[in-house]
Amino acid sequence: MTLTRRSLILGVAAALGFNPSGVLRSPGGRAHAAATASAQLAAEPAAAALSRSQLEDLVAFAEVLVGDGPLSPVEREYLVDHIERRTTQGGGYYLELYRTTAGLLDSLAGARFSSLDLAQRGALITRHRLFSSAVRPEENLGPFPKKAREVRTRAVPDLIGGYYASPAGWAVVGYGAFPGKCGDLARYTSPER
């Protein structure tokens, strides 16, 4: 069976107990669901640039970086979309970077990173300062310094940027329409409701 990217996302979402048809949440209305990203999926994605587990690791990593709780299925879709675009258009660079990232996360976790719950992922990221793209010259980067530097300086800003450039990022500031999404012509004339 061949899965589309969308069915992959919805598969992850369903496994996490979300309503897959849920649209972008409002900035205030956060989804509260059990937070484990370890969905077991039936098949490999069609675009096999990254393995399923690598993709899940990256989304699970980004989930901790970009917000304060579990992401909705639609938000995950934006992230997967971003990662896929990078890997198909980035001339191999991003594929390498993402593989390095997933590899580092799994090594540090001693398990699949995406199998950890949100709190565990947050603790691991804090412990290894994997949230910060700024690396001080004398900083101890842990057991895999080269990879950690790569992940912090390249993957972290990339994943954060990918999320906040997406409709999810605009939703954070309360915009349902934004550059690239058409809307109501009168809206720009008064304050946002």
């Binding site: 901790v64 970086l65 970009v66 917000g67 910060s132 793209s133 954060i160 906040y164 990022g169 954070v172």
Partner: peptide, 17 residues
Amino acid sequence: TPERIAGASGQWGEALR
């Protein structure tokens, strides 16, 4: 834009949002 603010903030998680 939200992307630029996020990129320049040096924050993550809830503080970033």
